[in-house]
Design a protein around this nucleic acid. Structure first.
Lengths: 197, 197
DNA sequence: ATAATCTGATACCCGCACGTGTCAAATACG
DNA sequence: CGTATTTGACACGTGCGGGTATCAGATTAT
């Protein structure tokens, strides 16, 4: 049970370790995004990932540790999708960015729940706040006329829009919004325009 | 240990029972609003309320049961404060309603957290959704020109504004918004106006 | 005053999940 | 082919919180 060095199944020890870690992250996204972090145990994650507990502790030290890794991977992926879309919009048209956000976050209920709910409680609170900070920075990349208005007021609008996005995502997945994805994007674009004057 | 009927300390059995129930709800608001529902046990609540476990089960059957009672009491109180303010605004001026909301919800971090975070997870999901429905109805009491636009689009805006309110509340309590309460209200009024055209 | 009842503190049993350990089957190296 | 390593399935000890019961002190009714 010492350090793994051999090749197994055609893959190296480091690759196997990374595969197991990724399977645990995938299982975490599935369970955290449906039941919630508080309702998931290590045994549950291992069963979902079809791994035994030893390999959980190989890469993570606790459920919260795994949850942090899942959250970071999800948000990093989201930023990687949205930032190029912002560039594509040239700082003028918010539609590409919002389309990327909707496709990346709202399209997956698990991601939406992770961002809107789980990222605000317990061990994920810091990560959620960090993501919010990044989102606000992205907002300021868009928002024009920073000089004329109060900076704190603009910041409030950024948080307001972020909250609007997450809440719309939850409502959308709850089925209370009888709209197509395109209609949701249209509305979000309109809301963005209204908030930025 | 049968049914209580006597007078004790000058108060009747039913009154004592109600006092104990209220003390448990108060303790629940304090703990749920700071640590989160998932991180609170029955022993914790009893210690906070300075009661023993027997009296917990006298009024509630589980932590989730108590959490539901706390959530309902908080949201009922909030509605009772906001609705008269809506009437005072005459369906035209949103400022009284938003002022009442800010004073009732954002003023207390525990309430803000309960609404924004706890009301979306686990056993409180249904209650949170119910409160969101009530909030949307209140929105429609304001929102003019329901006939011209799509009803679903208006509904989306209602959820967007609700999400904006909760997110601003969290950001406010996180200290990232360097604004006075009056300035926050001003901004919320402006955002409301922008969203209702 | 004596008995009945309410209250608080404590003890106890139990289930569950965590964390660790053991053992056999599978696979790779010499 | 034989040995070493990796993997999976399972077993074990432990701590913690839920839920119930017991007991002593306080207050009220008769």
């Amino acid at each position: 049970m010492a350090e793994s060095t051999r090749v197994y199944g055609g893959v190296s020890a480091g690759q196997r370790r990374e595969q197991r870690r990724q399977r645990l992250i995938d299982a975490g996204l599935e369970l955290f995004g449906t039941r919630g972090v508080a309702a998931v145990g290590i045994v549950d994650v291992c069963a979902e990932a079809k791994l035994i507990k030893r390999y959980f502790y190989e890469s993570f030290s606790s459920i919260d540790d795994l949850a942090a890794a899942v959250f970071d991977q999800v948000t990093d992926s989201l930023v990687e999708q949205v930032v190029p879309a912002i560039v594509a919009g040239g700082g003028q048209d918010p539609r590409p960015a919002l389309t990327a956000y909707v496709n990346g976050a709202l399209a997956d209920p698990r991601v939406a729940r992770l961002l809107a709910v789980e990222g605000r409680t317990g061990a994920l609170a810091r990560h959620g706040a960090g993501f919010a900070t990044r989102a606000v920075e992205l907002w300021f990349a868009f928002s024009p006329a920073v000089d004329g208005r109060d900076e704190a007021a603009l910041r409030l609008r950024a948080y307001a829009f972020a909250g609007a996005l997450t809440q719309v995502g939850l409502a959308w997945h709850d089925g209370v919004l009888d709209l197509t994805v395109e209609q949701v994007i249209d509305e979000l674009v309109a809301i963005f325009s209204a908030l930025t004057q």
